[in-house]
């Protein structure tokens, strides 16, 4: 990862010095362990602040929406797929971007690592295969594969799908990954079982909207939950309103979600709302052979009509 960081600084400096871009979007070291912060680098000197490690899970495509500058952006597989989606949806133009691809080894799950520690974590460092966690009076070494973010553990697009240059050689894409075991388990529940499962899943939601706001797809000028004239959803903690928010948001992401995990990562109370978007992702794959953000040419399934679209749910 140190090699990535050095290369990233070098590329950012070069792009800014040559005025190829006005700004570079990357990560700087955060103030707490396992937390890097997205940042905009504007001068070649500031490129020295950039870092790359397993704590760059925030999706940087989220910061591109409707920007007008020429931007260099570091993109993991999922980021690059969301950049494609942004371009298709006219949120940014391809010509504005210099995309520096970052072949990804998966990001680590800071919530889970914190929960597994025997006290407060003071420092986390990593080498090729291990994540070394230290705190007052304890030290734990995790194999990085055991502590990946849940979405990274089942990722099949680690390499960027669109880029102008690469930080390193492409990585091998994992073979037979069962991406949808959790979704199938929920599908197998009875209607009542599903209702109870979702009730429990959303019990702790505080409607802070971190999931929505961390998501590059959620760029509506006014989200339906924020509409006040008319008001579509109640704004209290009533469970029906909370559930309405999560379901509707997920449906708005159908055929667009890349399972980047930004929503789950951002959630302050540990809700796995990815089960909603993954169900729709699975449906898109099974019914339309579609995975979001892989091509600038293909139109998304909900954006196109084909006479052979599956319609067996319609009488």
């Amino acid at each position: 990862m140190r090699a990535y960081t050095e290369k990233i600084r070098e590329i950012a400096r070069r792009l800014l010095e040559a005025c190829t871009v006005e700004r570079v979007l990357g990560f700087r070291r955060g103030s707490v362990p396992m937390m890097n912060a997205p940042c905009f680098v504007k001068t070649p000197a500031e490129a020295a602040n950039l870092v790359w490690d397993s704590n760059c899970g925030i999706n940087l495509a989220n910061y591109l929406t409707s920007r007008s500058e020429k931007i260099g952006i570091f993109a993991k597989g999922c980021d690059s797929r969301n950049i494609v989606t942004h371009i298709i949806e006219n949120k940014i133009r391809r010509e504005q971007l210099v995309i520096i691809g970052v072949p990804c080894h998966g990001m680590i799950d800071r919530h889970r690592i914190a929960a597994m520690a025997d006290g407060e974590i003071r420092e986390v460092v990593e080498d090729e295969n291990n994540i070394i966690v230290q705190g007052d009076g304890f030290k734990k070494v995790h194999n990085r594969h055991d502590v990946l973010q849940a979405n990274c553990a089942v990722c099949t697009h680690r390499n960027p799908v669109i880029y102008d240059e690469l930080v390193a050689d492409l990585v091998e894409e994992p073979g037979d990954v069962d991406r949808y075991r959790d979704v199938r388990e929920i599908e197998a529940l009875s209607a009542e079982g599903k209702w109870d499962f979702f009730d429990d899943l959303l019990h702790d939601c505080i409607r802070c909207y971190a999931c929505r706001n961390a998501c590059p797809l959620c760029y509506c000028p006014t989200c339906f939950v924020d509409e006040s004239r008319p008001q579509w959803v109640g704004k209290s903690q009533d469970p029906v309103d909370v559930r309405t928010f999560h379901f509707l948001r997920a449906y708005h992401c159908a055929g667009r979600c890349t399972d980047c995990g930004a929503c789950e990562r951002a959630c302050p109370v540990g809700i796995n709302m990815r089960v909603f978007t993954k169900k729709l992702e699975k449906d898109c794959l099974e019914k339309f052979g579609w995975e979001a953000g892989l091509s600038l040419e293909a139109r998304p399934p909900l954006d196109a009509y084909r006479p052979d679209d599956p319609d067996d749910f319609i009488r």
Binding site: W195, G234, S236, Q237, D238, P239, V240, D241, R243, T244
Partner: peptide, 10 residues
């Protein structure tokens, strides 16, 4: 019985 809100449960 589901998705029915008679009064906010707060």
């Amino acid at each position: 019985t589901h998705f029915v809100k008679h009064e906010a449960k707060v």
